[in-house]
Nucleic acid binder design. Structure first.
Lengths: 219, 219
DNA sequence: GCGGCGTCCCTTACGTCGTAAACGCGCGGG
DNA sequence: CCCGCGCGTTTACGACGTAAGGGACGCCGC
């Protein structure tokens, strides 16, 4: 690698490595993120990265957490419902900007510090709303799953944007197509509005919490 | 590879290849599923598999669909709520038996024929319950996400069974731990009951549907 | 000034992966 | 008899993650 006219170059660092990985994933997809590619992006050999990330796995974990770091922070001036909505919809918007991130996050067990912070905000909001610790715990899992899982779902649908979302890829042994009467009926009579669906399910969860709070107060 | 005393061996076939992949994933994890490993399992070279599966990706898709094939079928003798519960809880139990399957299914865009059949059953159940096509569509996505996403979540928690479920794996740049007061509070006062949580969220979804049906009937 | 040491990056190498291409073998039909 | 073809093998290529060691540069105490 030739140096610039000044003869020096920006030194490597963990943040620069992670940022290069994110940039690569954003433009070419996660599959393009290999140690050698990331190195090339930085004008450096693959092995040099190992001084800053101990393995490719921790690089990916750090990349995911770098995205989660952009998630919004709880706004204490709102009621708990709107606070939740802000958090969850904000996370959704961030994930839409980095289509690989939802997939990477769900397919990887590690939970980074920023994700812990986000979970803590969700839990704090639920506790503020009057949830028992148990209820808050359960609902926060459901919300986590909604944020990452549902967003992944939506991204996939719009990725395979060539007409129908349901495109069977593998043919069964016998060969013939599977009859799916209800599926085709629904696809004819319903349209797919990404954002509305996401908000709808979130509202169902919120309504579920309100209901649980009401019945526990009454009992 | 030496032959048995009879001098012949079971001929290869697509189902045998897929079954070997499933067996390998069940015992050694998905990461152990390589073409060479699957071949070894069958007493055959890696390249031989390509006569039955055109690539590793379609092998994995077929493996996932083989698992989904075990999902239950809708029982028309039940009311729509219980029919849903049977379908969704049955799928959950199957996925628990093959811990890799939920991860593989969510991280992979293809939808196989058995999964289409399952979605169709869900949709049929919802339509039977009186849902509009649009509502059925939205809810079925939420249910799909619940089945695969939530199950994945639960499996992960019990995989990292070494005490706390929230073990941050990557340290931030600055180094220090993140303060998570609500999280630690909740972890102290709530316990994690896998099955109860799964059923709880499902019931929240069902209640949401009932509510939507009631208000649309009233309006 | 200078010798050692730490930090940073490079080179080389190994074993694995997915898979393209061509080969060999055995069997059933002309 | 032999041709073809279905099936499995062999060989090979270009990636991959990463272990091990080497060399250059700058800062430290002396």
């Amino acid at each position: 690698m030739t140096l610039g006219p000044a003869g020096t170059r920006e030194p490597l660092s963990r943040v620069r490595v992670v940022a290069a990985g994110v940039a690569l994933a954003d433009t070419l997809g996660v599959d393009a993120v290999s140690m050698r590619q990331v190195g090339r992006q930085l004008g450096v050999e693959a092995m040099s990265l190992y001084r800053y990330v101990s393995s490719k796995d921790v690089l990916l974990d750090a990349m995911v957490d770098a995205i989660v770091a952009e998630f919004p922070v709880a706004d204490a001036s709102l009621g708990w419902q709107d606070r939740l909505r802000t958090l969850v919809l904000g996370a959704y918007l961030v994930l839409l900007d980095h289509p690989w991130a939802a997939a990477a996050a769900t397919s990887r067990p590690a939970v980074g510090p920023h994700r812990l912070r986000f979970s803590d905000d969700i839990l704090g909001t639920l506790l503020d709303g009057g949830c028992s610790p148990q209820l808050a715990h359960d609902v926060s899992h459901a919300i986590d799953n909604h944020v990452f899982g549902f967003t992944l779902h939506e991204l996939r649908l719009e990725a395979g944007s060539s007409g129908s979302a349901y495109a069977p890829a593998s043919v069964p042994d016998g060969g013939g197509a599977v009859p799916t009467p209800h599926l085709s009926f629904v696809l004819q009579h319903a349209h797919h509005d990404r954002d509305a669906e996401y908000a709808f399910v979130l509202d169902v969860l919120i309504a579920g919490v309100e209901n649980a709070l009401a019945t526990s107060a009454a009992g």
